[in-house]
């Protein structure tokens, strides 16, 4: 009796939202975005580019605003500013004695501030809230097209140059020694990062998009010693987080972006505690033997 009640409850928990067109679209698009970000995530965590991800994702803000104001695809504006910020970071770092993490923090907050000021100055129907915190429930048709296109592009690039990128993250010195173009790989990864940030911000917004880019990879890193498995786990955990995040936000009336990222964080926490090899729990067991 109880069990039956529970199962109908779960069924309706899962099925009811699907009767809404906007929910189906949000689930599909967010899963796609999550998969792309999760795919990239395994490279970024291994390369140690978390801060870079944060910088790029915040720096796209003015690009989004300007693109909206000019009626251009917002991904174009975001991309230009994303790559621009990285170029600027590299330039300032090279030309001054200021340390890299300081330069990164300095540049991206500057860009971000510019974006916020622009929103307040440019009279348009830009919704600041949806840029900052995402609006997966209100994705338009043109956004869908852009997202699908960019996602495919990133997946293709990452797949074609997969082995080179792994080598680049692992041992760029060797890559250089055997005649592989390291500079190209550097910018390729940066380009993918900018593009993924662009699609990711629709789901969870600029403020939280970096979580989409690092948390799934970090979670996967705790669970496996194989790069291929790491990518698979990363993608799966990202997609699950997106789906459940959206469900929770529907049923409990939560901010969607925050909800998605929170589920990701909980999955990471779970791996952190209980990962068979690298979880904390494992160590506890070890110590209790003494």
């Amino acid at each position: 009796m109880d069990l039956c009640f529970l199962s109908t409850n779960i069924t309706s928990f899962l099925a009811d939202p699907l009767s809404h067109e906007f929910m189906r679209k949000a689930l599909l698009m967010s899963s796609l975005v999550a998969a792309v970000c999760g795919f990239l995530s395994s490279y970024l965590t291994l390369k140690g580019w978390a801060l870079m991800g944060d910088a790029v994702s915040h720096s796209v803000m003015p690009g989004v605003v300007v693109a909206y104001a000019l009626g251009l695809p917002f991904s174009l504006g975001a991309f230009i500013f994303g790559v621009g910020s990285v170029a600027l970071i590299g330039f300032v770092k090279q030309k001054s004695r200021v340390k890299e993490d300081t330069v990164i923090g300095l540049v991206f907050t500057g860009f971000f501030a510019l974006g916020i000021v622009l929103v307040s100055k440019i009279k348009s129907n830009i919704d600041l809230h949806s840029i900052l915190f995402g609006s997966p429930l209100g994705i338009s048709l043109s956004d869908v097209k852009q997202t699908v296109f960019i996602s495919l592009l990133v997946v293709i690039l990452l797949s074609v140059f997969r082995k080179d990128l792994i080598l680049y993250c692992f041992d760029p010195r060797h890559a250089k020694t055997v005649g592989i173009n390291v500079l190209f790989l550097h910018y390729l990864l940066l380009t993918c990062l900018s593009l993924a940030a662009v699609v990711g911000l629709q789901s969870v917004g600029i403020v939280l998009v970096v979580a989409m880019l690092i948390t799934p990879g970090a979670t996967a890193y705790l669970l496996t010693d194989k790069f291929d498995n790491m990518t698979i786990i990363s993608v799966i955990s990202a997609v699950i987080s997106s789906v459940f995040g959206i469900y929770f936000s529907f049923w409990f009336d939560l901010e969607t972006g925050g909800s998605i990222v929170l589920v990701q964080t909980f999955i990471f926490l779970f791996a952190f505690l209980f990962a068979p090899r690298y979880g904390i729990f494992k160590f506890k067991k070890l110590f209790s033997n003494y």
């Binding site: 692992f170 592989i180 010693d225 790491m230």
Partner: peptide, 18 residues
């Protein structure tokens, strides 16, 4: 990075990439 998730085989194969 000695914790990088690649196997001995993968690393040695990197010698052939060029």
């Amino acid at each position: 990075d000695s914790q990088f998730p690649v196997s001995v085989w993968d690393v040695v194969m990197m010698g052939r990439y060029g």
